[in-house]
């Protein structure tokens, strides 16, 4: 926990204190719990380890009996991913689009979530649920109309189109998570600020946002991940300049002439993981803590 976060937390008196790593000797139960956690995590990562190994294999070494972990390693597949599939520029597109959609959705979604949680707008609850339900819409029902609109406006194959399209499913998500988060904040916060001469908007940006930073950051990460791996909208709305990595991967997997090359696909898969893991490690402190402060309340 950073010093600032600590201070804000103290100011917000009634937020439950976060469990802290216990210092000194741990009980046997506690040790079992830690180790079980590590084992579960390792189990979940095993398929990814296999993917990592596969990404360094020649195609002839991928399918063998028995499966082998000793093989002549090669970086051919990574070279192929960059050269043949043009993954470099597509990675940049993906980063731009995912961050763009994440930021835009975070701003709009957090404001709306705040309105739903605190401002007692008539009918807001229903609106909230409807927006939530919209997450269940088959994406194919949105993709084609979106394309037609983008085509009319002449903005197909641009980053901004994809960013806007992604807002359709990221905003509801942010709204729902942030609504729960704001519900758990003490009301007195902005009321006192407003009595001090702040407008509602001012109170939100000056008081609520800084306190909610951890929650916003964790929501942001999940939002970026949602946009990061999206395929269908990207397929329909891009063609050359704004093509994202999932589209390139879908193309590689559907090679109708030579069959899918799982080495190159694994390499591409590994490359998509790296930026997100770096981002997650950078902000991992807030990842849980943000949600911990009451992210979801029914």
């Amino acid at each position: 926990m950073t010093a600032t976060a600590e201070r804000t937390r103290e100011r917000v008196g009634d937020i439950p204190r976060v469990q802290r790593p216990t210092v000194g000797r741990r009980s046997r139960g506690e040790r079992t719990r830690i180790w079980s956690g590590v084992i579960v995590c390792v189990l979940f990562l095993l398929p990814l380890v296999w993917m990592l190994l596969t990404s360094f294999k020649f195609q002839r070494d991928i399918f063998t009996t028995p499966p082998t972990v000793f093989f002549e390693p090669t970086i051919t597949q990574y070279v192929a991913a960059f050269k043949n599939a043009g993954l470099g520029p597509k990675m940049i597109n993906t980063i731009i689009v995912a961050l763009g959609a994440g930021i835009l959705s975070l701003v709009a979604g957090a404001m709306a979530g705040y309105a739903l949680s605190r401002l007692h707008i008539k009918g807001a609850a229903t609106i909230g649920v409807l927006i939530l339900v919209s997450r269940g819409v088959p994406p194919i029902a949105l993709a084609v109309p979106m394309f037609l609109v983008a085509r009319t406006l002449g903005i197909t194959d641009t980053h901004i189109t994809l960013i806007l399209a992604y807002c359709s499913f990221v905003i509801p998500y942010v709204m729902w998570l942030m609504r729960g988060f704001f519900l758990s904040l003490p009301k007195e916060l902005e009321e006192s600020a407003m009595l001090d001469g702040c407008s509602r908007m001012g109170a939100f940006f000056r008081i609520i946002v800084p306190i909610s930073a951890p929650g916003l950051i964790s929501t942001f990460i999940f939002s970026v991940i949602l946009a990061w791996e999206e395929l269908l909208f990207a397929l329909v709305l891009t063609s050359r300049k704004a093509v994202t990595v999932p589209v390139a991967i879908a193309g590689m997997a559907g090679d109708t002439e030579h069959g899918a090359n799982w080495g190159a696909l694994s390499a591409a898969g590994m490359l998509t993981v790296v930026p997100v893991v770096i981002l997650a490690l950078l902000v991992q402190k807030w990842l849980i803590r943000g949600l911990a402060d009451g992210a979801i309340k029914g």
């Binding site: 084609v144 397929l235 329909v236 063609s239 879908a250 193309g251 997997a253």
Partner: peptide, 12 residues
């Protein structure tokens, strides 16, 4: 264009 979307994108 990925195989599975080629026809639909062609139509568009």
């Amino acid at each position: 264009v990925p195989y599975t979307e080629l026809l639909a994108k062609g139509m568009l």
